[in-house]
């Protein structure tokens, strides 16, 4: 009977039309499909690093916060059309996005990596372990060339409208077939199914998937940073909303000083990804 009541209440609650929100109440948009950054559990609750961090930041800012779900490809348009006031969805700070929205300072940094299935010809490529695309050195160029040769004509899956897609589209890795997906979950599924030869995303997205699904997904090649990969992950905020931007920047400073970001990062990523 309890579940029946809960069901009716949930449906009735969502029927309510809200007009003119309280100024002290901010809404934060997240995707809920990018573990370990943000995802959903079987009870239907949003969980993950950013969900916990968002609650901590709101506590510091003394705002009432609601976290809402939004499909990734509509994230920035939804922010602009005021469906919510801030984005915390593993969104990297890039120049392209800055043309449309503002970003707070970065709160975490993710390195990107290619992944293949165990047994693939491109497993364990001999390259540098990390490259930074901001200033490409001769060694780094050699690594890019190795990658271009190894993945020539291969199909690589990425989530649509991400830094990872921008990088593949830039041609720095040569001619590869890029296949874009709505969510990282779908990229992982098709990588495991063998529909794509490799995938590119945050390294943690693959290690988390491999660990939880038991599929033999392995990282290969270098980790990527700089250039198309942006400058860490920050809170996306509408242009002109400078008060909220300042609030978030101050709150991130405080959370960093108190070690909150490091603690949450270690809990969800297994290492300190804070910045």
């Amino acid at each position: 009977m309890n579940i029946f009541k809960k069901t009716i209440l949930t449906v009735l609650a969502s029927l309510f039309l809200v007009v003119n929100t309280n100024a002290d109440n901010i809404k934060i948009g997240t995707e809920g499909a990018y573990p370990p950054w943000n995802s959903k559990d079987a009870a239907g609750n949003l969980i993950g690093f950013e969900v916990e961090l968002a609650n901590e930041l709101c506590k510091i800012m003394k705002h009432n916060c609601t976290i809402v779900e939004q499909d990734w490809d509509g994230m920035i348009p939804a922010l602009v059309s005021r469906k919510f006031d801030a984005i915390m969805a593993g969104m990297s700070i890039t120049d392209e996005r800055k043309k449309t929205i503002n970003f707070s300072q970065g709160y975490a940094d993710e390195v990107a990596s290619l992944a293949v299935m165990k047994g693939s010809k491109n497993e364990g490529l001999k390259t540098l372990s990390a490259i930074n695309l901001t200033d490409i050195s001769a060694d780094e160029q050699a690594t890019l060339d190795t990658l271009a040769k190894a993945f020539k004509g291969k199909t690589i899956g990425v989530q649509t409208a991400t830094i990872h897609q921008n990088f593949l589209d830039s041609g720095l890795m040569g001619k590869v077939k890029v296949r874009t997906y709505k969510t990282q979950d779908e990229v992982n599924l098709d990588l495991a199914a063998g529909r794509i030869d490799a995938a590119l995303a945050a390294a943690v997205a693959f290690t988390d998937y491999a660990e939880k699904s038991g599929k033999a997904v392995v990282l290969t090649g270098p980790t990527f940073a700089g250039g198309d990969f942006g400058n860490g992950v920050g809170v996306g905020i509408r242009k002109g909303d400078s008060k909220l931007l300042n609030d978030f920047n101050a709150a991130i400073d405080k959370a960093r000083d108190e070690g909150i970001i490091s603690r949450l990062a270690i809990k969800h990523f297994g290492f300190d990804a804070s910045m």
Partner: peptide, 21 residues
């Protein structure tokens, strides 16, 4: 209509499918 964020049958299945693989 899952794009609107409304959790109906399709969106719920999508979330469940993603979460449980």
């Amino acid at each position: 209509i899952s794009v609107t964020g409304l959790v109906e049958i399709m969106r719920q299945s999508y979330i469940a499918a993603g979460s449980t693989r």
